[in-house]
Amino acid sequence: MTKLLRIAMAVVATASLGQLIGCSSGEGRRATNLATGNVKVQGKAAPGATLVFHPEKEWGKDEPKPRATGKQDGSFEVTTYEGTDGAPEGNYTVTVEWYVPNKPDDGNVTNRAPAKYGKAQSSPLKVTIGKGPNSLPPFELK
């Protein structure tokens, strides 16, 4: 009887250990909310412009910040982990950079967006991501 009990306990212990290990590999992702918007530089759509959403409270060093890239019409969908999953709830400062090859075939690129939008310290673009799908106000860079 005691032997049976011991075996049963060992089985339960092993199973729960597996559960624990399984839980710890959850990668610590934050819950995200869909977010879309549009970016224009000097009144023109900015395809290929890269946007980074800098959270108000600093995240871990290697945690990916929400990002987006402008499409042909300047519209964008925010990505944090995969696909167009959006961004976690919170307040963000958005940086916009628009790197374009100097010539179509050149190795060097120039940022066509005004420089102040490229740094989290100086960018005036502030957004709040709430629950549910977010439609961000259009970003008009001048």
Binding site: D62, R67, N108, V109
Partner: peptide
């Protein structure tokens, strides 16, 4: 390395002509 990665804080140093194969 694309400069947007440095803005996103994912890399230390970026630069489009810093790789080992060059076109310039």
């Amino acid at each position: 390395v694309h400069p947007s990665l440095a803005t996103a804080g994912l890399v230390d140093v970026a630069g489009t002509t810093r790789g080992a194969i060059s076109k310039t």
